[in-house]
Amino acid sequence: MLEIDNIKFQYPEQTHPLKFALNVPENTALVVAGISGSGKSTLLNLIAGFLHPDSGDIRWREKSILGLAPAMRPISMLFQSDNLFAHLDVWTNIALGVDAGLKIDGESTEIIAQSMADLGIGDMETRPIPTLSGGQQQRVALVRALVRARLHAAGGAGGGAGSRSLLLLDEPFSALDPITKADCLAVVRRMVDDFGITAILVTHDASDAEALGADVFSLPTPC
């Protein structure tokens, strides 16, 4: 269970704080919908640790993760664009999610290969990123998230974070064409169903919830 416990957060230029309170059961998908300015991305950045709340707490499996650096939290995050390093190939981009120093052991190598095959990009290891389509690029980023979740499933290397099975999706598919977008959402669904991922998708398009088969949490319009 991910518990967002009465978080308050205020940007310096804003007059009113953003407030969030919700629980996300493990191994489910949740769509967070809201108009621009409602704080959708802010919520994900708070969970990921890129922003710090003024008050409240965030707990994962009943332990507060507020004091942890982003790398120590049980998360992987996908952004709208630039999720991959354009000067590196597909495999290296995925491997960086395992260890930024690229110390990859045999077990990790296998997990990477397995995950690439599972999500249907098994033959792309050495492809340069600029040659991939937008949908393919986001799929590589999803594979990277999956590898991170599987690797730390045993709860060791995460430094106490345990499995990095919380997937934060910050409108990563909104720029894709409808068919590709549906494909990607299906991949996310599989990650939830088959690999124990908990996914939170932020979107301004409520119909994504239907495609993903997920509950919708609507953020209130800011005053």
Binding site: A48, G49, A71, S76, F79, Q80
Partner: peptide, 13 residues
């Protein structure tokens, strides 16, 4: 891009 700095933190670089 900003995203890359965020990725770096997420990956614990």
């Amino acid at each position: 891009p900003d995203t890359h700095w965020r990725l770096a933190r997420m990956m614990g670089m």
